[in-house]
Amino acid sequence: MVELNFARVRPEAVMDLTRVPELREWGTENGRLRVGAGITYTRVIRELGDRLPGLAMASRTVGSPQIRNRGTVGGNLGTASPAGDALPPLYVSDAEVELASVEGTRRVPVAEFVKAPKRTATNPEELISAFLVPEAGGPQQYAKIGPRNAMVIAVCSLGLAVHPERKEVCACIGSAGPTPIRACEAEDFIRGVIEEEGLWESRGELAEAALGRFGELVSEAARPISDVRGTAAYRTHAVGVLARRTLGWAWNEYRGGI
């Protein structure tokens, strides 16, 4: 809409999908949530906050109430900006994106769906109809850096999910690379630490050194550019800090929740 207002784009046709009821529904399907692409951020926060806490946290950071009342996760997926707030939470839960056309529907892992900045795997005849994601099995976090708390495009961000059911911790960097980036080495490292020390069972503390190393490895996974919102060096440093902190918060929540 902003691009239209400033005549930066002149699409021949614009289609309003906000009143398609099928896109505004969510439910469960084979143990996963299937969330219609037209569900607004406001509804994610209100209706799915307990099932998808990481996505709800990210949704709270989007724009302002007025924007959250209209903006949707489906729109965030379609835009495929590396700074899209909904994306890291979907990456760390291995979400799938459902694409529909007259030929039928197909489902694509979100990391394959987002191809490059603002480029997706959607074919011209396809519509993003929903995303599929498991309910949180453990604590989730989302943290974002920007000059203020509202109306901010992330300088950088980090989504994190603790998955006790499969004994993994997943982390995804936002806005510090051409697409969201899963920090695989950091994930492997922390899985090793937790396993070795038997922390899944004991729910013991994660050592400060392990948190620090986790942050360093997340920083190493970033591939940021310098732009008006921040320098590459700042982003590299900041995602590491976010990773260390969010893991600390999430792990403490895991320890507390028996």
Binding site: M1, V2, N5, G63, S64, Q66, I67, R70, M151
Partner: peptide, 22 residues
């Protein structure tokens, strides 16, 4: 007129929206 300032806020079916983005 780019959805940032909030001056144009109205309620549509009870929900606040930016009327410059609709």
């Amino acid at each position: 007129e780019q959805g940032v300032c909030g001056s144009c806020t109205v309620l549509v079916d009870g929900e606040s929206v930016r009327s410059c983005l609709m």
